[in-house]
Amino acid sequence: MWFRSECSKVSDSLWDYSSQRLSAAETAHVERHLQQCARCQAEAEAYRYTVGMLGAARSQPIPASQRTWQDLRHGLATHRQAARRSADLLPRLTLAGAGTALAAMLLVVFFGGAHGPKKTVDAPRPNGPQQGVPSVHEASSPPEGMVAKREPQAGGHDLLSSFLGFGSFFPGAVTRLTSPHANAGPAVEPRSSPPRRRPHARAARLAGPARPASIPADYAAQLDGGNVPPRRQPRNFVLNPVAPPADEEPARRYVMGSIPVAQTGAGVTASSDGTEDGGAW
């Protein structure tokens, strides 16, 4: 055990021992151990050989470099030129990009609305049958006698749709037409196409099922007048037969292929013994 720890200690300092970097006391300690331990001696020999090889490599003259300061100065000048060129180019590129963007925006603002079909609205006619309710229809030019006046709406849809030529897809692109007669009355806001609204599900449920087309006229009149016959009450099915009162003869009805039913006034019961009712079970 003692030798083992001593071996590990000595092994740690064998490189320095081989390269003669230990003090005299440390060197003496290592040599004392090496005289006793053959394994450490072999290891010290390997270290000595490795250190000798490294010493040879260190003392080996290396070839001269072929690149000089002149080469590097040339490289530095090239680098400076490239840096200057890029530094000059950057603001120009930025300026050109900003100019292009500005020109594009100006084009959009001034000429963007001239393309694409637009929705036009008929001006209200004071004497017409649809007074105050203008109709919407597709047209690329205003009707005769009308003056087109565009009314862009908020959100930029009008501008964008005009620029892209998709005017018919956006509800915002509405052109308002004014006629000479329209000045007489107050301006009527054009109505865009009514939105398709799905009927409310609960309201549809409350309204009940759609009335069939072939409903009889008298029943329809009853429905409309609120004179609807009461609903049939549900039948009560019991497993055990209820014995009818002795003084009352139940009205019997026999339906082929169904449950024999015994009606007793307000309630309806079904008897489970098919023997009496004709063996429908």
Partner: peptide
């Protein structure tokens, strides 16, 4: 320390 030991082992195995 580790590099020295690895170098010694490689040199030894080469020799």
């Amino acid at each position: 320390f580790r590099a020295r030991r690895a170098l010694k082992e490689r040199v030894t195995s080469l020799m």
